[in-house]
Design a protein around this nucleic acid. Structure first.
Lengths: 149, 149
DNA sequence: AACAGGAATTAGACGTAGTTTAAATTTCTG
DNA sequence: CAGAAATTTAAACTACGTCTAATTCCTGTT
């Protein structure tokens, strides 16, 4: 596992600067929320986390900042749930388990996996990223839908 | 390529009945939209396709029907775009290219590919499905964001 | 044909994630 | 400090999808 420590404000500011982002108060708060805990959070959850004590950051800023972080390669979007996007502070190549029951995401290191037989991208296209999502669910809770067929 | 012919109303009705779905007029229209063209459509596009000539099917029915088709295993959801869900009439195991520029989805036969080193699902969990999405984009249009870092 | 009853459909109100806008505030620079 | 540029903000807005309650359709019975 990579050592993503709780990180101080100094370190967070440095991280932003290294990515060409002016470290404002709000951006530091958001960076802190994402990088201190090692989790996948939705914009909603980040907004809540940042304003836990006293409201100090607006919804617009959270969305602006996440988009900025995304462009600068600081975070990744994880699109697994039709109702919301998750932001992933882990940017090295990796994949995900997605727990359908709880909505929880679990990282899978890409090094452990091999994909062969990947077809080439269509003419004039380049592959930007390969995402593997394994949707999992509790063993006991069997869905009736399939059995009915 | 599997032979998904344009299919007559008779065949469509049969397909629905085999999946335990009462074939109503609206459901046949929707099935036809999905299965005659071999495409991935959003609910929006299906609504438009079905009502091309004269409006005859409501938004609520399109959503109801797609959910029903999903439960009965007639279609699959493809979640690649944060803003809308695509419905895929192809239910055999396969994966997708997702064209970030155009929003177009292209099937990749699962037989051609091999994934090794897939970790086991966490205790008490079963894998329901493995989705592989290859995000592609036009070669020429290079994004500046990565180079800036 | 009349009718009862359940399934399917519907318009329109609603909820919610995310975007936009225009103004206010902060930050930077000379 | 003045002025400009960048950032943040509240609030209005858009769009996908859901819900509700009423209506229509279908099927079997008499």
């Amino acid at each position: 596992m990579s050592p993503h420590c709780p990180l101080t404000r100094e370190e967070a500011a440095d991280l932003l600067r290294r990515h060409g982002i002016t470290p404002t108060h709000q951006r530091l708060e958001i960076a802190h929320a994402l990088f201190s805990r090692r989790q996948h959070l939705s914009a909603d959850q980040i907004l809540a986390a940042v304003n836990l004590r006293h409201s100090e950051t607006s919804k617009a800023t959270v969305y602006n900042t996440l988009k900025l972080f995304l462009e600068k390669g600081l975070v990744r979007e994880v699109i697994v749930d039709p109702s919301k996007v998750f932001y992933d502070p882990h940017t090295e190549p990796h994949h995900h388990f997605y727990n359908l029951a709880s909505g929880e995401l679990i990282d899978i290191d890409a090094e452990d996996m091999q994909v062969t037989g990947l077809p080439a991208a269509p003419a004039g296209m380049v592959a930007e990223r390969v995402d593997i999502i394994i949707r999992i669910r509790p063993e006991a809770t069997t869905q009736t839908a399939t059995r009915a067929a």
